[in-house]
Computed example of a mutant assay.
Amino acid sequence: MKVLFVDGTIIGSKTGAMLDTVEEYVKEASGDFQIERMNLADYDHQFVDGRPSEQYNEDMQKMVRKFEEADAYIIATPIFQGSIPGVLKNAFDLLHPHAMRYKPVSIVANGGTYQHHLVPEFQLKPILDYFRCLVTPNFVYTHSGHFDQDNRIIDEDVHNRLRELARVFAKYTEMSQDLSKDVLDAN
Rank of each mutant, 00 (worst) to 15 (best):
A99W: 10
D44M: 11
G50H: 10
K66P: 00
L118T: 03
Q55P: 01
V119I: 09
Y130T: 05
Y172Q: 03
L165G: 04
H143P: 07
H45W: 01
E68K: 14
V119E: 05
K125L: 08
M60H: 06
D93K: 02
N151S: 12
Y130G: 06
H146N: 14
G112V: 07
Q123M: 15
M63I: 15
A41N: 05
Q177G: 10
R161P: 00
F139P: 01
Q61F: 07
A91H: 04
P104I: 06
V140P: 00
Y73C: 04
A170N: 10
D71V: 01
V87N: 04
R132F: 09
H146P: 08
L95N: 13
F169R: 02
H45C: 06
N138G: 03
C133V: 03
S83G: 14
P120L: 01
S83Y: 02
G86N: 15
L179C: 14
P120C: 00
R152T: 06
H143K: 13
Q61G: 11
L134E: 01
L118S: 05
R152A: 07
G50R: 15
F139N: 03
S106E: 08
K89C: 05
L118R: 07
Q34F: 08
V158Q: 07
Q55C: 08
D93M: 01
M63A: 12
Y73M: 05
G86Q: 14
V108A: 01
Y102A: 14
T136C: 01
E164G: 05
M38D: 02
T113F: 05
C133W: 02
F47L: 13
R167V: 01
N151Q: 11
L162P: 02
Y56A: 03
F139M: 10
P78V: 12
A109Y: 02
G82W: 15
Q81A: 13
E156V: 08
P137S: 05
D42I: 08
H98C: 09
A109C: 09
G112Y: 01
A76S: 10
